[in-house]
Amino acid sequence: MSDDVLRVDGVTRRFGSVVANDGVSLRVRSGTVVGLLGHNGAGKTTLVSQVVGLLRPDDGSIRVGGIDAVAEPATARRYVALQPQSQAPIDGLTPRSAIEMAGRLRGLSTRAARAAAESLAEELDITEWIDRRALPENRGLSGGIRRLTAFAMAIVAPTPLVILDEPTNDIDASRRRLLWQAVRARADAGSGVLLVTHNVAEAERIVDDLIVLNHGRVAATGSPARLRGATGTDLRLELQFPPDAADVGAPDGARVPFAVRRTVRVGRRVLHTIGTEEAAAAVTWAAALRERGRVDGYAVGPVTLEDAYLSLTAVEDDTVPAPAGTEAAAHV
């Protein structure tokens, strides 16, 4: 028997001439966290809307808990807990009442829902606000507390599939850490989690597998280690260019005097992936550029998933061809 709680095969959704999802396929298994990464407009939320039956795909199939979610969307939704990207409409409610209400709708008894609300408030460090009422125009509760309340409403009762669409928006750093721990705990308890986000650095800490969407298509899939596509000893050299730089990526028209495995430009940042054997030469070169005012700053560190993500989703103009070798020294 399959342990898939979500299986998407060849899903395509069009809005007129715009193809929001283009043959997307993915799977989420019980006990795993799958990250769905992509820039704004990549098609992430459109895909989620189809999974929960708010939109119908033009082509392809979606199965949730073995149920055909296209043919039987109402039945499939019973297997899904969703935290949407937008804020939950909880004006007039306290976090306690909102979470308890969600628990009761999910089939919990009054006592169980009350206990779950208190436990989640403690787990997410929002006990101080649990009985404070949310008021119109974002008064009464901050955006972060509202977001954590919505997250608690989604996970208050166990479900086979949990979908979280940008769950950490508006949440401070310390409580983001608690939220990620809660996500991982639900997967470890048996739920499958589809985590929709553009926060690559934070997602890497808890996901088992990743799907990268780029302009509606799957650009890559695999574990974080596989998508990084670098050896365990690779490093990244980041150069930060000044606002008026006319030669981003090639200061003074000079060649990079060491071997580079991958280079991506993002705005005024250039990210070079290099081997550890090139670290000394890279630092010497970057420090000289900094001294001459050609770059605002530089940093050397381990290769991250963000580097791979940027490489996969960079537009053509943002990709800087890697130097062909180290024969010529750069003049800095």
Rank of each mutant, 00 (worst) to 15 (best):
L55Y: 13
S30F: 01
D58V: 03
V156Q: 02
L164T: 02
A117K: 02
L124A: 07
E122Q: 15
D91G: 04
G10P: 08
G60D: 05
Q181N: 09
L82H: 04
V48L: 01
A121Q: 02
R27K: 07
V183N: 02
R292I: 08
A102E: 11
A322Y: 05
R177N: 13
V303Y: 09
A69Q: 11
D317W: 08
D131V: 09
T127E: 15
R265G: 11
R29K: 04
A121K: 01
G253I: 05
V248H: 09
G65T: 14
A219V: 09
H198C: 06
D9N: 11
R133G: 04
A112R: 15
G301L: 05
P95T: 03
R228Y: 01
A152C: 09
S30R: 01
V18K: 10
G53T: 04
A287Y: 00
A134I: 10
I171R: 11
P136N: 02
T197Q: 10
L305V: 01
T12S: 13
R132E: 12
H331K: 11
N40P: 08
A280C: 10
G35Y: 00
A314Y: 13
Y309A: 04
L164G: 03
A329Q: 11
G267W: 07
V5D: 04
G103L: 08
V183C: 03
N199P: 06
S142D: 12
Q85Y: 02
N169Y: 10
M1T: 03
G43W: 06
A328V: 15
T159E: 07
T263C: 14
R146C: 06
T46L: 08
A187G: 01
G253A: 05
T46C: 09
T110G: 15
D252T: 11
A20M: 02
R228F: 01
A324K: 12
T75G: 14
L108A: 12
A254Q: 12
V283H: 10
M1Q: 01
T149Q: 12
D318P: 15
L55S: 09
A281K: 09
L6S: 02
L210A: 04
T12C: 07
R186W: 00
D125K: 03
T32F: 00
L178Q: 13
Q83D: 05
V320M: 10
R186Y: 01
M1L: 00
A117D: 11
A189Q: 11
V28N: 00
L54W: 10
G249P: 03
D3I: 09
T326I: 05
R255C: 08
S191F: 07
L55T: 05
G325Y: 08
R111G: 14
Q87N: 13
L312K: 12
G38D: 07
F241S: 02
V303K: 10
V200R: 04
D208P: 00
V256T: 09
A279Q: 15
T276V: 12
L235E: 10
V264I: 07
A308F: 03
